[in-house]
């Protein structure tokens, strides 16, 4: 080539290579594998408990999941929503910017003639898609182990109606999408922290700290007025999925709340990326 033409790499190729890089990290793979095991272990536990006739004492979703296999993925996701999935999102976001910075590889990317926004978008895409993969994987192993271990055709809802298999599958899908969106919201905040530091551990600590402090604040009745702005407020709304007819209000509200956190986290991360030097 005689003239130097700066050509941007096609975005799909960049995204694919980012995804491949994230998925090649051993900790990502181990994390995904452990998450996929969660529904299986829960299914085994519930099956053993049912066989021993220990039905009493369960509350809420746990009381419904016995002999109700299609509910297992929803139950497992709502349990993982409390800590495991936020941890995964925070870990991915920590690796995306702070981790690269710790290895000294972020400096190279910042020096390259690539827009900072584009760089952040590619990193965010990596976090978002692996989160989605993790949740879908849990839903899949949940469905399989639920149907095999707990049995039941279709799904018994909290309202006492029975849904056919396809409708139940739809409910699992709604749960997966909702949970993913909520984890994205937390991961966006984690990504913003990640843009500020070069220590991945700080990102994980701050993100989980946010989850725990939100939980504590929500438990204090005198601070009820804070509830609407806490990131964890809508995480419980996932149980609306098992009602019949499904109640969309809390789910939509939770989705909007997650979007607000995505905007906050995304804009702070972008602003920091614009001025970051290495």
């Amino acid at each position: 080539m005689s003239t130097l033409v700066v050509r941007r790499a096609p975005i799909t190729r960049v995204l694919r290579s980012e995804l491949r890089m994230v998925l090649r990290r051993p900790r990502t793979l181990i994390g995904l594998g452990l998450l996929a095991l969660v529904p299986v272990l829960m299914g085994i536990g519930i099956a053993i408990a049912t066989a021993n006739g220990e039905e009493g004492g369960a509350e809420g979703l746990a009381a419904l999941v016995i002999g109700n296999g299609m509910l297992l993925p929803i139950f497992a996701l709502s349990i993982a929503m409390a800590m495991l999935l936020p941890l995964t999102g925070a870990m991915l976001a920590a690796d995306a910017l702070a981790g690269e910075s710790a290895h000294g590889t972020l400096r190279g990317m910042l020096m390259a003639p690539v827009g900072r926004g584009r760089l952040l978008a590619v990193k965010a895409f990596g976090v978002a898609s692996v989160t989605l993969i993790a949740v879908l994987l849990m839903a899949l192993t949940g469905i399989i182990s639920g149907v095999l271990l707990l049995g039941g055709d279709g799904m018994l809802t909290a309202s006492g109606t029975s849904l056919p298999f396809l409708d139940a599958l739809g409910r699992v899908l709604i749960t997966a999408l909702y949970v993913t969106l909520q984890v994205w919201a937390l991961a966006a905040v984690a990504l913003a922290v990640s843009a500020f530091t070069e220590h991945p551990l700080i990102v994980v600590v701050v993100s989980l700290g946010l989850v725990i402090v939100s939980g504590v604040l929500a438990a204090i009745p005198a601070l009820d007025w804070l509830d609407p702005v806490l990131v964890t407020t809508s995480w419980d709304a996932v149980s609306e999925v098992v009602r019949d007819p499904i109640e969309w209000g809390p789910l939509v509200e939770g989705g909007l709340r997650a979007l607000c956190y995505l905007v906050i986290g995304g804009s702070i991360a972008y602003s920091r990326m614009l001025t970051r030097d290495g």
């Binding site: 609407p228 702005v229 956190y261 995505l262 906050i264 804009s267 972008y270």
Partner: peptide
């Protein structure tokens, strides 16, 4: 960018409530 994004997000959170 940071101020506008944060303001929009917080305004949204309050509006939902």
């Amino acid at each position: 960018v940071a101020a506008a994004g944060t303001a929009a997000g917080v305004a949204g959170l309050v509006l939902i409530a």
